[in-house]
Design a binder for these strands. Structure first.
Length: 279
DNA sequence: AATGCGTCCTGTCTGC
DNA sequence: TGCAGACAGGACGCAT
């Protein structure tokens, strides 16, 4: 599922490949996933690609912003030639390396014949055209405003489980299920711990662990596990799935203490932890 | 205000 | 083997 490292990896790819291009037209194949009038950006040049939390935004020269959220199963694919949209890898669930595919919902065509396919198996994702970029309420965890002070305040005064709180996009933006599980493992904190029971020392370690985990995800260009749909725009995979610490590790030995990892449910989501070294 | 649950959607997995 | 039902999961809307 695309979280901060995945969306940032896509952002960097698009930044190098579509900035400066002019949008020639938008094909909306799934009406409910597009908000706004695409005519307003037709013929307009792209000047930047932005990101806030898990939201990716294409900035146009006329101060309009096309924001997109990939939710659970969104993919952004880029081909330099719409007449030969063949990718080097098979696209998961589309079961072909040729686009558009059966999960393609929106297509952005550029004036040099290059093209973006927005695929989404589950149709949870969206694109919104607006005069300002869409963004999460919480501070992006890679922003310089995401200080320890901010973090401490964001998790204070609640008895909810720490894992649920660090995934709350209104408090801090960018952390999803994969990186929440791994950051808590790294910090040796049990995911169900009530926020208001964390010591100052634990909060400091967790803050550091969140940043380290997100940066590690970024280093490997995100996670494309077997059952996931995330790809870079050229159809290549991320490799953070080869470095999971806790996510989906239930039944395997803890990488620190060899205790068998467990799975539980928190806030309706799969949660993975070491019952021995996460307190 | 804060919390928790149902909803959206579809491929895959499980159990009979 | 076939089929129905459960399940996964980010964020939003609504009820409490």
């Amino acid at each position: 599922m695309p979280e901060l490292p995945e969306v940032e990896s896509i952002r960097m790819y698009l930044s190098a490949n579509i900035v400066g291009k002019t949008l020639q037209g938008v094909e909306i194949l799934e009406k409910k996933m597009f908000f706004g009038d695409p005519k307003k950006i037709t013929g307009k040049k792209i000047i930047a690609i932005l990101r806030s939390g898990k939201v990716l935004t294409i900035q146009f020269e006329n101060k309009l912003y096309l924001s997109t959220h990939l939710k659970l199963s969104g993919q952004i694919l880029y081909s330099p030639d719409k007449n030969k949209p063949i990718f080097k890898n098979t696209i998961p669930r589309a079961n072909t390396n040729k686009m558009p595919g059966k999960t393609t919902r929106i297509i952005l065509n550029f004036d040099d014949d290059s093209v973006i396919y927005f695929n989404d198996l589950r149709k949870f994702g969206w694109m919104k055209l607006s005069d300002k970029p869409a963004h999460a309420k919480g501070t992006d965890v890679l922003s310089k405003d995401f200080t320890f002070k901010y973090f401490e305040k964001a998790i204070a005064k609640t008895a909810r489980p720490i894992k649920v709180v660090i995934m709350d996009q209104e408090r801090m933006a960018g952390i999803g299920n994969i990186y929440a599980n791994d950051a808590l493992w790294l910090a040796k904190i049990h995911p169900a711990r009530k926020c208001n029971t964390l010591t100052l020392q634990e909060k400091k370690i967790l803050y550091r662990s969140i940043l380290d985990t997100i940066k590690e995800g970024l280093k490997y260009k995100g996670s494309s596990a077997h059952d996931e749909l995330y790809l870079l725009p050229d159809s290549s995979k991320g490799s953070y799935q080869n470095h999971f610490k806790a996510y989906h590790q239930h039944g395997t030995p803890c990488k620190r203490c060899k205790t068998i990892m467990k799975r539980m449910e928190l806030g309706g989501r799969g949660t993975f932890f070491c019952p021995h070294c996460q307190k």
